[in-house]
Amino acid sequence: MSIWEYANPVKFMRVSGAALPWLAIAAAVCTLGGIAWGFLTPEDYKQGSTVKIVFLHVPAAMMAINIWVMMLIASLIWLIRRHHVSALAAKAAAPVGAVMTLIALATGAIWGQPMWGTWWEWDPRLTSFLILLLFYIGYIALWSAIEDPDSAADLTGVLCLVGSVFALLSRYAVLFWNQGLHQGASLSVAPGERMSEVYRYPLYVSMLGFLLLFLVLVLVRTRTEIRRRRLAALQAREMRA
């Protein structure tokens, strides 16, 4: 049996249905636990209590990028191996990715207000996330605009491919354009810049929580899409007969 067996809709529904309750519990515990733990951490001597925002901002930013990468992989699997569930999973992931990007942007803006003295700064990192949000919106809009599911899956797949290249290109173009105020990556491994352990562990829990939450959401949304497609397919068959 190959791993591609799970791309069969019936099998996917069975396996995901069995796994979902456990995953949902784990996601709820980790996400809420991580956020609550983060909320109770002591203040940072420099940033004060705003450091608590990191437990939302960083996991959301991480997922915003990872979800796009997952969509790219799912699109490639669809375009190359023609697994229908894969195309639907890419479609299901997009709104979750857009919300993650929105959270990263919103928390970034709220955090930036006291730190940089402005709600919005055209900092390369914030700008990149704004551009990423535009790509998510375009992708979602294209899916909803095309009626025929086969064309929609193919065209959004091609858009995801081209979009990935340009999202990456924009990231470097933006760096060239403005050097920015944003601190380095928060989980940087360089010695001396390491985050204190008081913050590190709750952050790990929160990141795991966001990842599990994404898995749950993408499974639920893929199941929704499969059911919708099945209903449409049954209606189409009835109409043809």
């Binding site: 004060g48 209590s49 705003t50 925002i53 901002h57 979750v96 919103a106 709220i110 006291p114 199941r223």
Partner: peptide, 30 residues
Amino acid sequence: LGKYAGTVLAAYGVSLLLLAGIVWQSWAAN
């Protein structure tokens, strides 16, 4: 939360609201 109470609470509020929104929407649609 010290002098940044508003900032921190706003960030948590907005994030939790957005998360709750996408969870509810996914569940309802399903």
